[in-house]
Amino acid sequence: METLARIGRFGLFGAAVARRVFTPPWNTRDFFRHTWLVSTRCMGPVVAVTFPFGMVIGLQGLQIFDLFGAQRMLPSLISVAVLRELSPMLASVLVAAQGGSSFAAELGAMRIKEELDATEVMAVDSLRWHVVPRVLALMLATPVLNVMGTVAGLAGGFVMAVPIQGEPGGVFLANLWAFTVPFDLVVGVVKTVVFGLLIGLVACFHGYYATGGAAGVGKSVNDTVVHSVLLFFAANYLLTSAMFAP
């Protein structure tokens, strides 16, 4: 029953945030500050993860295509895999691990030190002032980071195939976009906006309702990463089904 109550509280929290997103006043300064901070903090981890993953696809894909003598197909496989699935997922996992958990830690520390109560006492709406900018910042930053992840993943595949395995570079570049269509770019953006929203809501929910001192902050950071990853993997299945399944 405890879980059910928490899910209900999460729904109410989401509704409260949504109501404040569409009504003035907006805290634009914090929104831009958080977007900038999240993007710069997550940029390194996102690139550091998607680049090796692109290399791994190159490595494994070459082995399969060698069986059929179809090495030409490798770049098409890499671009499809990276654009549609890997880059949105990996970028979102890293945004949850880095951006989401740092928001949860910040809000949790503010709750524990009673800074959030202090804002309320000064008649400032703490949800509007502290939570809404963070949620919107993650919603904007995740698609941007996804683009960087995509570029890094493709670069990883290129580095694996051309300089390391000695495939001809011109063939690689000529076949890169053979199976991708402009719709794939839309897919990446739609997915990452939804994932960013989910991460932002989960992170702020756990941070905002943190209890129990320093250990509580650690627990809320822990829960943030786990719950947001679970939630957007489930969302990913539904979105992929909606966009690709027959």
Partner: peptide, 26 residues
């Protein structure tokens, strides 16, 4: 020390661990 320290430590643990696992995986 303190709540921020705990949050910060937890945050960097998960980021560094997952990035190094993916790199090692390659």
């Amino acid at each position: 020390k303190g709540p921020e320290g705990v949050g910060q430590a937890t945050n960097s643990a998960v980021v560094i661990a997952s990035v190094s696992c993916v790199t090692l995986n390659f």
